[in-house]
Amino acid sequence: MATPLTADQFVTALRAEGVIVVEVDDWRDHNRNHKGAWGPVNGVIVHHTVTSGTASSVELCYDGYDELPGPLCHGVIDKDGVVHLVGNGRANHAGTGDGDVLSAVVGESALPRPTANDTDGNARFYGFECINLGDGDDPWPAAQLDAIERVSAALCRAHGWEAGSVIGHKEWTNTKVDPVGFAMDDMRDRVAARLGGKPAGGVNPRPAAGNGYEPFPGADFFRTAPDSPVVTAMGRRLVEEGCSAYSQGPGPQWTDADRQSYSAWQRKQGFSGSDADGWPGRVTWDALKVPHSS
């Protein structure tokens, strides 16, 4: 058992593990503490949202709906691996589950199959909603799975837990099926491997100085149609990665060919739909490793 982290401790733990964090509105004071206990905490529950689109999914998890007011979790993990913090305290994410499962999590032992729904999970677990339709077809990009691994490891490290403290919603209660699309045993293996070392860090807010790569200039930079050597360096890396839509160039002026090429890179990284729209984001930019242009 452990005392829940404060908001500052929570953010510090995530960022120390290399998580890209977005703080949403007044998440630090947004909770359901007036409806029940928050803590002691024992672990982390991973969910999928059954939604698509970052903005709408974050809004839903922050506000909730008539039958289930928000916050519906503590953080929303988008397809780009960014974690949007929406709650701090008790959240409507876990509901009731099996007390025997809780005992197994506390003991970090093999999980029994959930049968009873007799224990308040909202008091005992951190919860992360991951943007995915949950239909078995919607992909889980590498960046998103990496973020799930990192947030889970961050909280385990902060509380002195092992990977056995990380479970899926379907492992907590027999009324849920999430997450669909990856195995929780595999995720626990990833968390265990990460906990074997020190916090990774270093992926946000930008690559470390002196590493030879161009730091992410921000999404707005590209929407202004810049004329910059950064665009040339990016284009050359896209060509090297086999993601070229250029008939000539690349050159310093941002064009639709740059956007089409970057969209191909996003798809190569496992993104699709609006998440592969050709506008660079931090995770795919860092993965591209664009050399310094000056």
Rank of each mutant, 00 (worst) to 15 (best):
M1A: 11
G181C: 05
G99Y: 02
L14K: 07
S263W: 06
P112H: 11
I131L: 15
V177D: 00
D227F: 01
K79D: 04
W285D: 11
L133P: 00
G95L: 13
Q266T: 13
L68R: 15
S57N: 09
P226A: 13
V21Q: 14
V46E: 12
V283R: 12
G164Y: 03
G64I: 09
G39Q: 09
H159K: 01
V41C: 02
V11S: 02
L155N: 04
S56C: 05
E67I: 07
R188K: 03
E59C: 03
R237M: 05
Y213C: 00
A158S: 03
P141R: 07
L14C: 10
A55Y: 03
V50I: 12
P199Y: 02
L5V: 01
S274W: 10
A37W: 12
S272I: 15
Q269L: 15
N122D: 13
G53A: 07
W161K: 03
A193I: 10
A208Y: 01
N92Y: 14
W265Q: 00
A13I: 02
V239Y: 00
V11R: 03
G196D: 07
T115K: 14
Y65H: 07
N174R: 13
L102V: 07
P291V: 01
R194E: 12
S247H: 10
S272G: 01
A193L: 05
D277S: 06
D275M: 08
N92S: 13
R150P: 04
R28M: 14
S274R: 11
G281K: 03
L102H: 06
F10D: 08
I131Q: 05
G43N: 07
K268V: 10
Y246P: 09
F182H: 07
C61H: 05
V46H: 09
V86W: 08
W254G: 11
N92H: 07
N92M: 05
G127E: 08
H292Q: 14
P69S: 00
W279A: 11
G242R: 06
P4V: 06
G99L: 12
D189R: 03
D258A: 00
H169L: 00
G270Y: 08
N132E: 08
P71L: 04
P179C: 04
R188S: 02
N204I: 12
T119Y: 08
R15E: 15
A91G: 06
G75L: 09
T3R: 14
G95P: 09
K268R: 15
A219N: 03
S293Y: 14
E149W: 08
R124W: 07
D8I: 04
S294Y: 15
G181F: 01
W140T: 04
M184K: 00
A110N: 13
E59M: 07
E214S: 09
D8M: 10
S165Q: 05
V46G: 05
V105Y: 00
Y62F: 07
D185K: 13
K198A: 08
S56N: 00
H84T: 06
